[in-house]
């Protein structure tokens, strides 16, 4: 449990600080400098988002004026409404949400089950299953591009939600995470459960699941963002406007012909709406996000 360990050390930091504090000089110039540098880093990192936002509030004249106007203007509502209607953003946001939530929930569910089988059962082919799940790490979409498309076509899943989600549900990292976690659970607990007459499914449901919530939350945040930000897969699997996700649909706002006037304020409004849900999830669930990210990638 790295997150817990790190927290403890962080706590030790604070305690040590408090102990030496009285010997320190009142103004810590070093700390002020670090604050200033950090604020500078944050400003650089935040600028692109700030810029996208202010452009999305400007009229087209303001967008193209020189020198550029680097402040928000008053056209926020009309731009967002225009963008929303122009490419049916509502439907695309809905599709993205379905895709992200289904993939995250599906990966967690099937990974919990297979990790449970691998840790708590002795069966023929156990290691084979484990290795098969592991090898999926080495088969990202591009290395099986055309033939996966063929499989989806054979199943008749082109342009369907199951086509968008089920093929992405295998997860080696989630399976490993649950496996690691189950291995930390004391054997006595299983024995006690067995003495009480609990079968395997009862044990999974009433003992393991309640203990797994922290891991589930952490994985959910990371996998939600993974699902939301998919690009190649929805581009391949969907071919109608109604099934597009927002990340690929956004591209439809950019004119490629050159005869059409590029409405950059609407494009930026679309971009802001495409990035807002996953960014909000990270900011609101930061603790789970960091835990999920750092532990799942082991």
């Amino acid at each position: 449990m790295t997150a817990v360990g790190a927290g403890r050390i962080e706590g030790a930091h604070v305690a040590a600080d408090a102990a030496v504090a009285p010997r320190r000089k009142p103004v810590d110039w070093g700390a002020l400098l670090v604050h200033a540098l950090l604020l500078a880093c944050i400003a650089v990192v935040a600028f692109p988002l700030y810029y996208a936002f202010i452009i999305s509030t400007q009229s087209l004249q303001e967008v193209v004026q020189r020198p550029p106007l680097l402040l928000p203007s008053s056209h926020l509502v009309e731009n967002y409404v225009d963008a929303w209607q122009k490419v049916n953003l509502g439907q695309m946001l809905f599709n993205s949400a379905v895709m992200a939530v289904t993939i995250a929930a599906g990966k967690i569910a099937i990974s919990m089950l297979s990790a449970f089988a691998i840790v708590y059962f002795d069966f023929r082919g156990r290691m084979l299953c484990f290795w098969m799940i592991f090898v999926t790490l080495m088969l990202p979409v591009p290395v099986r591009l055309m033939s996966t498309y063929e499989v989806i076509g054979t199943l008749g899943w082109i342009n369907t939600y199951q086509g968008l989600t089920i093929p992405l549900m295998a997860s080696a990292t989630a399976t490993f995470l649950f496996r690691q976690f189950y291995l930390t659970i004391p054997n006595e607990m299983v024995e006690a459960a067995q003495l009480d007459g609990a079968g395997p499914m009862r044990f999974l449901w009433s003992f393991l699941l309640p203990l797994s919530w922290a891991n589930i939350a952490a994985l959910f945040v990371v996998l939600f963002i993974f699902g939301w930000n998919q690009y190649l897969w929805p581009l391949m699997i969907t071919n109608t406007e109604a099934m597009r996700t927002i990340v690929i649909g956004l591209e439809g706002l950019i004119p490629r012909s050159g005869t059409e006037l590029p409405t950059w304020n609407l494009i930026m409004a679309g971009a802001v709406m495409a990035l807002l849900p996953p960014v909000a999830v990270i900011v609101l669930m930061q603790r789970w996000f960091v835990k999920g990210l750092v532990e799942a990638e082991k």
């Binding site: 569910a109 089950l113 297979s114 002795d122 069966f123 090898v135 088969l139 399976t175 054997n187």
Partner: peptide, 29 residues
């Protein structure tokens, strides 16, 4: 580790993941 005993249950538990793995990863690869 203490293990549960069942002839079929472990296979049913790994089935969803292994099925996705075979149909969408190994076969296309």
């Amino acid at each position: 580790r203490t293990v549960f005993r069942s002839r079929w249950l472990p296979y049913a538990l790994v089935l969803p993941q292994v099925a996705v793995t075979i149909v969408f990863f190994f076969w296309p690869a």
